[in-house]
């Protein structure tokens, strides 16, 4: 397998006077096509670590390598360029631009990498269609449900076919039905070969991952490669009850 993302000895410290060490020496490697979930209690450093690995924040010490390039020492302009093309991000609170329609929110990142407007519109329509939002393209985010807004956010994150899709609690602000739908879509993108790194409190999201890494006090406290789902023994023949 090819390594897509690597964090080496990552440290992140905040504050000048009383220093807070959010991440205290984390090594993490993600292979192409892998789905990794980061779990841990509040304040364990998981969101900070995700931001460092996605190039949204810079480490105090350590290195971040994405697709063979060291990104933590890049200029802001170079890093922004890499992020636009190689990293898609989904947030807990969707972060859609409220004055743009669903389709325009998805078109925007495509225009930023130089795609033509017509081409971008067609690609955005196809993406939204694939995520079950065919009739909602012209709707403003405020007229969409939470689950629909997160699906638009997912379409936006996938707009430039990123090598890496990261999410910070992508189901954290959704009811259980919408959370299940979004998880189903994340699973589908993963089955299509998408590399995924998600911070989550949601056990069902974590259970869908190939590998779960737990953090505590800014350090990795546990790691497990989940096996393919094993058959569940039913205590009786369920068909007789249908």
């Amino acid at each position: 397998m090819t390594v897509l993302l690597e964090g080496k000895g990552l440290v992140k410290t905040y504050g000048d006077g009383t220093k807070v060490e959010a991440v205290r020496g984390v090594d993490l490697t993600l292979e192409c096509g892998e789905f990794v979930a980061l779990m841990g209690p509040s304040g364990s450093g998981k969101s900070t670590l995700l931001n460092l690995l996605a190039g949204l924040d810079r480490p105090t010490a350590g290195e971040v390598w994405l697709d063979g390039q060291r990104i933590d020492r890049m200029s802001e302009a170079a890093l922004a360029k890499i992020r636009r093309r190689k990293v898609g991000v989904v947030f807990q609170f969707f972060n859609l631009l409220p004055t743009l329609s669903a389709a325009e929110n998805v078109v925007l990142p495509m225009l930023l990498v130089g795609r033509g407007r017509g081409d971008a519109r067609r690609a955005a329509a196809a993406l939204l269609d694939g995520l079950g939002l065919a009739g909602k393209q012209d709707a403003a985010p405020k007229h969409l449900s939470g689950g629909q807004q997160q699906r638009v956010a997912l379409a936006r994150a996938l707009a430039n076919s990123p090598d890496l899709l990261v999410g910070d609690e992508p189901t954290g602000n959704l009811d259980s039905v919408a959370a299940k739908e979004v998880l189903g879509l994340l699973r589908e993108t993963h089955q299509g070969g998408q590399t995924l790194l998600l911070v989550t409190h949601d056990a069902r999201v974590a259970a869908a991952a190939d590998r779960v890494i737990t953090l505590r006090d800014g350090r990795v406290s546990g790691e497990k490669v989940l096996q393919r789902a094993r058959p569940v023994d039913f205590p009786f023949d369920g068909d007789r009850w249908s």
């Binding site: 056990a203 069902r204 259970a207 096996q227 789902a229 009786f236 369920g238 007789r240 249908s242």
Partner: peptide
């Protein structure tokens, strides 16, 4: 915790065609 997550994965993939009681 990690063992429970594996069990959850197993259950999430359990076939739903086994009838309402099994579900």
């Amino acid at each position: 915790r990690l063992e429970y997550l594996q069990s959850l994965r197993d259950l999430d993939a359990a076939p739903i065609g086994k009838g309402p009681a099994a579900q």
